[in-house]
């Protein structure tokens, strides 16, 4: 008893107090947004009561968020598919083959991380103009896929490397071709990697702001972050709409996050990055 009490106090001071403080810092901003989104305009209550959905009606139907939402979903899903597919191909090549130029290719992948996307806006705009892709959702999908692929591929090669090569070998001994061996043996074991890489791609694409701002002019094609920016305007008075737009932007990301949470720590491990 006498020995346990100070230890318990130590644990509270060392563990639970800082954790509680940090949780307040994390959760209060989310709560503030929900509060303004769900309570009537002009209310000063600290609880979202009486509950109202008028602000969601304003942004969803009045401010075009329904269209923005659909656009963002399509763009993010297609980016997810392309990034995951190309990352699987390249990641497999990096993990399972030795080829001339491999080190240079890896170095190039790492170097892309130093290229500031924001500063590539004008040259990218020019290129998309030549391909007649300005005001097309493909410009976003292509740009996002390009900027996300390098890190996704490095991550994926780490996941492939973690699959024992013997499994593939024995399948190939049994007469499978390399592709069949990959599909039947390696792919199912890559599930955590595919989930991690795919959800990073989805979230990155969903959150992208500058590319959409620059490459799309037509409001019918615009995405959620740009829609969100229009609610931010310097002299905003409609805080309900600002908050409700934020909730709309947050929902898909929170759902994806809840889904990958489990794989997140594993997917980000530097073991995967360093190989």
């Amino acid at each position: 008893m006498t020995a346990a009490a100070p230890r318990a106090t130590g644990r509270v001071l060392r563990l639970f107090l800082p954790l509680a403080l940090y949780l307040v810092f994390t959760v209060v901003p989310f709560y503030w947004m929900l509060l303004f989104a769900l309570r009537p305009a002009g209310s000063t209550s600290l609880l979202p009561w009486p509950l109202t959905f008028e602000h969601f009606d304003t942004v969803w139907n009045g401010m075009g968020f329904r269209v923005y939402f659909q656009n963002s979903v399509w763009i993010a899903l297609l980016t997810l598919v392309f990034v995951t597919f190309f990352a699987l191909m390249g990641g497999y090549a990096l993990a399972r083959f030795k080829f001339r130029g491999q080190r240079a290719f890896l170095l190039a992948l790492l170097c892309t991380q130093f290229v500031p996307g924001a500063m590539m806006l004008i040259p990218l705009f020019n290129i998309f103009q030549t391909f007649d892709l300005i005001n097309s959702r493909w410009s976003l999908i292509i740009a996002e896929t390009t900027f996300q692929l390098p890190l996704a591929m490095i991550l994926m090669s780490g996941f492939v490397r973690n699959v024992p090569v013997e499994l593939e070998e024995s399948a190939m001994m049994d007469g499978c071709g390399r592709i069949r061996a990959f599909l039947a043996v390696v792919l199912p074991l890559l599930r955590p990697g595919i989930v991690a890489v795919g959800s990073f791609a989805f979230i990155g694409s969903w959150n992208n702001f500058l590319f959409a701002l620059m490459f799309l002019n037509d409001p019918e094609l615009q995405t959620v972050p740009v829609g969100l920016q229009t609610t931010i305007g310097e002299n905003t008075v409609d805080f309900g709409a600002l908050a409700a737009g934020g909730v709309v932007a947050a929902v898909p990301v929170v759902l994806v996050f809840a889904f990958v949470q489990k794989y997140l720590v594993q997917g980000m491990s530097t073991g995967a990055v360093k190989g």
Partner: peptide
């Protein structure tokens, strides 16, 4: 639960962060 809550802002975009902190 603590992990999930503490990690959750990781997935939030810059623009959404602005919306939230504008209110705050």
């Amino acid at each position: 639960v603590a992990r999930a809550l503490v990690f959750s802002p990781w997935a939030v975009s810059g623009v959404l962060t602005t919306s939230i902190w504008m209110l705050l």
